[in-house]
Nucleic acid binder design. Structure first.
Lengths: 111, 111
DNA sequence: ATATTTCTCTCGATTATCTAGAGGAGGGGC
DNA sequence: GCCCCTCCTCTAGATAATCGAGAGAAATAT
């Protein structure tokens, strides 16, 4: 059993979803699997976090969806990035890097 | 005017406070100034976030405080790390690095 | 005097996440 | 046929960290 994070760093879920969808359109369950796999088990995305995030992102016009049949022959809602979503991913990533760099500076400050 | 972050990445404030106090004991207002300075203006810590964090950390036995007179001759509550606080800083930092690395892996995944 | 800086703290709202479920539909084994 | 497992959807309520917008007090500067 790999160790998994108790709570996801707040505010990063949207970015991770956008990034996952930038790789390829995917349905909700698949996105959660993909994030877990790409993070090598560090992140497990709870459906109770995931679906509210979808509503949020869709309402903001960053993703759009359409019902389709999955590889396993099940009805699934395939999400994909909109143009605005691609832009948002870019800006969120940049902001994330900026904040991570700032935190790194603080953590590396020697006494 | 330097750009400042609208919202702090949630969950990192405690770590930043602990780190700041690991450098040297400091009062609340000073901590907020220090964080802003060390992050080069990326983070501005709202008092409405800061003081709840102090209560949280003190209740958890990670920091302790004592009233003292500041450099500017004002009464100030000087906080310092406890032993448990030093340990917590270590473990939180490690967990943070782990999650940042995982996110970096995801963000760097090429399509 | 008055304003500014330093320093304390609080209250209410917002919002993202977690916990803990329900439910349906396909496929495989018996 | 029947049952279970996997895939896949979604919801409701609680928790908790942060923000926004203040109040207040004391020392110093103007």
């Amino acid at each position: 059993m790999t160790e998994t994070s108790a709570t996801l760093v707040q505010g990063t879920l949207d970015m991770l979803i956008l990034k996952t969808l930038a790789l390829e359109p995917l349905h909700g369950w698949g996105i959660s699997q993909r994030i877990q796999q790409l993070s090598r088990g560090v992140f497990e995305v709870n459906p109770g976090s995931l679906f509210p995030a979808f509503r949020r992102l869709e309402r903001a016009g960053l993703i759009e969806c359409q019902w389709q049949t999955s590889e396993n022959n099940r009805r699934a809602k395939y999400y994909s990035l909109t143009k605005a979503g691609r832009q948002k991913l870019k800006s969120e990533t940049k902001e994330w890097e900026r904040q991570v760099a700032a935190i790194a500076r603080i953590l590396q400050t020697a006494s």
